[in-house]
Design a protein around this nucleic acid. Structure first.
Lengths: 253, 253
DNA sequence: TTCTGTGAATTTTTTCACAGCT
DNA sequence: AGCTGTGAAAAAATTCACAGAA
């Protein structure tokens, strides 16, 4: 996944913010830390230790510290992290200072739910444009936003300075929609459709695939089964057994 | 830097199915290959090469072959893979032979959409139980399934032999629901709530976190911005530039 | 003394490159 | 000829373990 073909690890720079190429895997976790910091801030906490934050986010403390070190962190040895400044650091590093405008294409079952999902607006990702192709949907209003026809993607996205697109269409429609988003200048796409999108190199696609997630879980169910049987040992009383992986994981951990 | 000192790549065993611990990262991709194989089968194809399948799933061909090698694949050198047998191998390896029964907790916005999402049933993951705590929802029928009260989780999950649980509740309710699922014997959970679930080691949790996904994309938007500015070069005409990562990725790739 | 920050070791994943069937 | 299967090399990510600031 990713990684510039060019192995040159570009050295320094004196600039303000970011320090060095942050590993992909770390970026995903930084986003999780940020959420937790916000929660802690809301609860009135002022500092956290790497240990506490790690437990709360289901991560190993050393990993957490290393992750934070990539953004040049602001901890205090012997004490921990002050929540407010750390939160700021993270917001800056993750591009949360300038709010991003999100377009959502496909307002069916899932898309409708996503459009109404508070989690987005709440964390600084206002959905500012909705699109569909169904005449019954075009024109209706969801959360105060009018659903436009897909053909309007270029115009509307430009007008509203959309930087992130979400595709929640049926599979067959996804590539076409994606092409339109790309030609409208959108360079980051979250894809819920069960297809692999073809995009130019400079476009970042992330895929959320519900069926695949279930498939992965099913694998672990089956494995647990095998392991339980494999342990020919006593297994005295109760139900299923076999020690198995704990994926506190989630998205690309 | 660094090579594995201990090259022990655990070899064979005579048994029927699985060969050896399949790397986590591979499992996720195997699920993707399986879907694509089904699609190809539907289109009437009979064979694929690793190259073709790799392109279709957005993966490097060598990686794909290595992934398949973990399940002891059935390709033909000089030719490729016969779709039908390979598909069977994959289904067996991923635990798709015995259909898994899925319970969905939280039939609000998102949960409702998921309950109706055809993608699940279609790929062998029938949602057989729905739960909520809201009196307005308990008792209604979605897709022919009656929504039960959350307190019925133990009974219903046992009756319907649920092996996979999906949590689509608001954050604060998630841990409680999770505990109930676990005590009902569910060992694989897909969590859409924005919290880190605390579970015993033998329970596998996967997390789908929409806000985090957007956050990750926002990071790339910001980075692209920086890179574009960093390249002091001309950048003759049009819009944004800077070569960026292409994450065909998605969930834990 | 406590807890961060980080080199270095370890482990996992990816990629290369080629021997070996068909 | 062509494409798979896989050791071995390379890269990335994780974890260890400890020096050093408060």
């Amino acid at each position: 996944m990713t990684a510039p073909p060019d192995p040159a690890q570009g050295p320094a720079e004196g600039a303000t913010a970011t320090r060095r190429a942050i590993p992909e895997a770390s970026v995903a976790r930084l986003a999780v830390y940020l959420r937790m910091l916000r929660e802690l801030a809301e609860q009135g906490a002022e500092t956290v230790s790497s240990e506490e934050l790690a437990v709360a986010t289901g991560v190993n403390p050393a990993k957490l510290r290393k992750d934070l070190s990539y953004i040049g962190s602001y901890g205090t040895r012997g004490v921990g992290y002050e929540i407010a400044p750390l939160r700021h650091q993270l917001e800056e590093a993750l591009g949360q200072n300038h709010a991003q405008s999100v377009a959502l294409v496909g307002v069916g079952n899932l898309g409708h739910a996503l459009a109404g999902y508070g989690g987005f607006a709440g964390t600084g990702f206002p959905v500012t444009a909705l699109f569909d192709i169904d005449p019954d949907l075009v024109g209706i209003r969801i959360n105060g936003i009018v659903v436009e026809h897909v053909r309007e993607i270029p115009r509307v996205c430009a007008e509203r300075k959309v930087t992130i697109g979400i595709i929640a269409t049926p599979g067959p429609a996804a590539q076409g929609v994606c092409d339109q988003l790309v030609s409208a200048g959108v360079r980051s796409i979250l894809n819920f459709a069960p297809v692999v999108l073809q995009v130019p190199d400079e476009v970042e696609v992330r895929k959320v695939d519900l069926a695949v997630e279930l498939q992965i879980l099913a694998f672990h169910v089956a494995r647990r089964h095998l392991e339980a049987n494999a342990s020919t040992e006593a297994n005295t009383g109760a139900g299923v057994n076999g020690h198995t992986v704990n994926g506190t994981g989630g998205l690309l951990q």
